[in-house]
Amino acid sequence: MGLEIREATMSDHSAVIDLIDKNGMHDYLPALYPHLVSDPDNFPFVATLHGRVAGYMMASVLDGGLTTLYRSARVGSSFRGMGIQKALLKHLKQFSSEQQPSHMYDTLSSTDRHVENCSHLRAVGYRPVYTREGLQMVYQIPTSPPERAGEDNSGRQIQVRELTRSDLQRMFQANSFCRELFPQGRLFNWYVGYRLMEENIRHLVRPWGGVFASFQDSRTSTFSSSGTTIGISTSSSVTCERDPGNSLDFYFPYNVAMVTFYNCHRSTYGAFYSLDTYAMPGLSRDHFQAHLRHNLKTLRRRFPGQRAALALTFDTTVSKECVTSCLSELGISELLPHQEKRQILYEKPA
Rank of each mutant, 00 (worst) to 15 (best):
A174K: 00
H103T: 11
L168T: 01
F177L: 07
Q94P: 01
S109C: 01
Q157V: 03
A73R: 04
D63Y: 15
A73D: 03
T107N: 06
V129D: 02
R161C: 04
L181Y: 12
V160W: 01
P128I: 05
D152W: 07
S144H: 12
G155Y: 14
L181D: 10
Q157T: 05
T164D: 12
C118P: 15
L163Q: 00
V61Q: 08
Y130L: 14
G81W: 01
Q184V: 03
R127L: 01
G155L: 09
A123K: 09
V115T: 11
F177S: 06
P142H: 13
E180N: 10
E116P: 02
S72A: 13
L187C: 05
S119E: 00
R113S: 13
R186I: 06
R113T: 08
R156F: 11
L88N: 12
R186Q: 09
A59N: 10
K90Q: 13
L62H: 03
D112P: 02
P101C: 04
Y126F: 15
Q94V: 05
S96N: 05
G185T: 03
V75M: 00
Q140K: 15
G81K: 09
R186T: 10
L66A: 13
A73H: 01
T143Q: 07
H114D: 00
S96L: 11
R80L: 14
H91L: 04
G150L: 06
T107S: 12
F188L: 12
D112H: 03
N175M: 13
S77K: 00
N175A: 07
S166N: 14
Y126M: 12
P128C: 01
S109I: 00
L121E: 09
Y70T: 01
S96C: 09
A73M: 01
T67W: 07
A123F: 06
S60D: 07
P142L: 11
T67Y: 11
V115G: 10
T68F: 14
F177W: 08
K90P: 07
S110C: 13
N153A: 01
A123D: 06
Y105E: 13
M104P: 00
S77G: 00
Q136Y: 13
L89E: 02
E180K: 11
